[in-house]
C-alpha cells in the first residue's frame, strides 16, 4: 500500500509519500495558485520516491487549499492530520502545538493518535506565523535572523497581542534605542504567552510535539517550551507533520 498526503497551506504546500515508512517528503511555495502548488508538490514527491502515480492507492488532502484539488480521494482537516502525524513520530506525545501561517492550534491527542480536543486562535493574527512575519519585517530581518537575534537576549515586554498594535509598539521600542535582540526575544515571549492562553483551554501533557513551519525557529520553540514548562519534541521537519498525518490516514483506511 502506497499513500500520499498533500497539505496545501497558506504559505507552503507539502507532499509526503508513505508506505509504512516515509518514502518522500517535499515542500513547494503555495504562491497564488494552490491547485498548481498541490500538483507540483505531488509530482516532485513521486519523482523523489521513484514511483509512478498509478502505484499510489490513496491521496488525502489537508490544509486551507484542500478543497481545491480533484485528485484527492479524501479531505481531512489539518487538526486531525497533525495529531496523526505527531503520533507517528512520537507515539508517547499527547499534545501538539501547531503554529501555521494564519492560525495556531493546540491539540490534545489520545494514545491512538486521535484528537481528543483542540483549541484554535480566533480571527486575529496574534500568535501566528503571520505575526512573526510582520514583526521580522519591522526589524528588517528574516525569520531565521529573528531567531538568531533572540539567542541569549533578555526579552523586553511587548504588551500588544494584536499584530497592528504590536507593530507600532516595536517601532516605538526601536526609536527609543532598544536593541533588536531584546525585541526579538520579546516577540517570542509574546507568542509563547498567546499559545499558553490557548493551551489553557485544553489539557496539556508533558510530551508536547511542536509542528508547523514556524517550529523551524528553534529559539521560538525554546521560548514556548519554557513558558509552558513542558518538554518540546521538535521534529526534524516540523512543517511536514500535517502532510505526513494525511498520508498515514490514507494508508490506514
Amino acid at each position: 500500500m502506497v499513500a500520499a498526503g498533500i497539505d496545501i497551506g497558506s504559505t507552503g504546500t507539502k507532499a509526503v509519500i508513505f508506505d509504512g515508512e516515509i518514502r518522500a517528503s517535499v515542500v513547494v511555495p503555495t504562491g497564488w495558485d494552490p491547485k498548481a502548488a498541490g500538483l507540483e508538490a505531488y509530482r516532485q514527491a513521486l519523482e523523489c520516491a521513484g514511483i509512478e502515480a498509478d502505484e499510489v492507492q490513496s491521496i488525502v488532502g489537508t490544509g486551507y487549499g484542500r478543497v481545491s484539488l480533484p485528485i484527492f480521494d479524501r479531505k481531512v482537516t489539518e487538526i486531525t492530520c497533525h495529531a496523526r502525524g505527531a503520533h507517528f513520530l512520537y507515539p508517547e506525545t499527547r499534545s501538539v502545538i501547531d503554529i501555521g501561517g494564519q492560525d495556531s492550534k493546540v491539540i490534545s491527542v489520545d494514545a491512538q493518535g486521535r484528537v481528543a480536543e483542540f483549541a484554535m486562535n480566533d480571527k486575529c493574527a496574534a500568535g501566528t506565523g503571520r505575526f512573526l512575519q510582520v514583526m521580522a519585517g519591522v526589524l528588517d530581518v528574516s525569520l531565521e535572523q529573528l531567531g538568531q537575534l533572540a539567542v541569549g537576549a533578555t526579552p523586553v515586554p511587548i504588551s500588544s497581542m494584536c499584530a497592528v498594535f504590536a507593530e507600532s509598539e516595536v517601532i516605538g521600542l526601536l526609536a527609543r534605542g532598544t536593541d533588536k535582540g531584546s525585541i526579538a526575544a520579546g516577540i517570542f515571549h509574546s507568542i509563547a504567552g498567546r499559545i499558553q492562553g490557548l493551551a489553557g483551554k485544553v489539557s496539556l501533557s508533558h510530551r508536547v510535539t511542536f509542528s508547523g513551519g514556524v517550529a523551524l525557529n528553534r529559539e521560538l520553540c525554546r521560548a514556548i517550551g519554557t513558558s509552558l514548562g513542558v518538554d518540546m519534541c521538535v521534529p526534524q521537519a516540523p512543517q511536514m507533520v500535517g502532510a505526513l498525518g494525511a498520508a498515514i490516514l490514507g494508508y490506514e483506511a
Binding site: 482537516t77 486531525t80 494564519q102 486521535r114 484528537v115 483542540f118
Partner: peptide, 20 residues
C-alpha cells in the same frame, strides 16, 4: 469574515466525533 476558520474547527470537531 471568519467562515474559513470556523469551517476548519467545525470539520475537525465532526472528524473527532467520527473517530470516537
Amino acid at each position: 469574515s471568519d467562515t474559513e476558520q470556523l469551517k476548519v474547527r467545525i470539520e475537525a470537531f465532526l472528524e473527532l466525533i467520527g473517530t470516537r
